[in-house]
Design a binder for these strands. Structure first.
Lengths: 152, 152
DNA sequence: ATCATAATGAGAATGATTCTTACTCTTGAC
DNA sequence: GTCAAGAGTAAGAATCATTCTCATTATGAT
């Protein structure tokens, strides 16, 4: 368990405990990795939190997702990605997605923009009788690394 | 070939021709289905444009994607989805996504909102040295059908 | 017509994710 | 302390959307 994350771990521990789930070392490692590295693929998670079996990682991520601790993202790369849930971090955010290397980076937008968007989305949904719960925004482009690589 | 879509088919035919690709009946059926039904999964496409083999559908969709005719979407359902490219239809749009049945419906947002968002996204990307090419927005909620079903 | 090239479809192969199962660890009651 | 019950773990099998292979069929140019 990473000391910098004691608050985070405390939160997760409570959440899991209330649901009768254990907050094992393996699960802590996954949460640590996600909190330090941002949205990760499974191979990345296995690397960062080494000593964990692939099947266990998948199973634990599924459990953590059901508990509202992590969220599964899906983009175009070969692997899915996982991140800590907004419910847990308290930070509403969106994603910069590199269409060259598939990396995903968090970004936050100004509150007034979020408000404007929420209003616009609500209005847009009325015509189709949709009830809006949330929005996901991918800002797609080229990351700094891939821009350099393209130069060379 | 659907007569209502003659303009569309003409465009696609030209695009494919320039690349030395044939615009066969099967490919026309796929384009027709997408133009009538909006974002479709593969099973949906097979149903709408029947008489097409699964492997051919996948192969043709890949070809059409490379030609810029269709775009592949990826959400949480078991199947990927396909839609006509904005380049082809000329309509920038986003998606209402039902988290209960995974259906996807197109929506357009007012131009001034798109402008505001583009500006905000550009600014947000600077910190991470991202070059922005486009944005994808999913407005996630519950579709009319699933709201009714939940009532019953 | 004939030939070269492209498209098709049946089925095999791929590979991320999920499932099964036998084993190990925790925890709480006694 | 120890024992049983329940929860977690990991190795490998299974699943299944998607991709690939290859033999056959259609198309278009000459």
């Amino acid at each position: 368990m990473n000391l910098d994350n004691s608050g985070l771990h405390q939160l997760v521990a409570t959440k899991l405990d209330e649901a009768g789930q254990m907050y094992t070392q393996k699960r802590q490692k996954l949460v640590d990795a996600l909190s330090q590295a941002g949205p990760c693929t499974l191979p990345e998670l296995l690397e960062f939190s080494d000593g964990i079996a692939q099947s266990s990682a998948y199973r634990n991520l599924t459990v953590l997702e059901e508990m509202g601790v992590v969220r599964r993202l899906v983009h175009h790369g070969e692997y899915g990605r996982w991140e800590l849930s907004e419910e847990l971090t308290g930070h509403h955010h969106h994603h910069l997605v590199c269409h060259s290397c598939d990396v995903v980076i968090d970004v936050e937008l100004p509150t007034h923009i979020e408000h404007l968007m929420d209003e616009a989305f609500e209005k847009a949904a009325i015509g189709s009788k949709f009830t809006v719960d949330r929005h996901n925004i991918d800002i797609v482009g080229t990351c700094a690394n891939c821009q350099e690589t393209a130069q060379a």
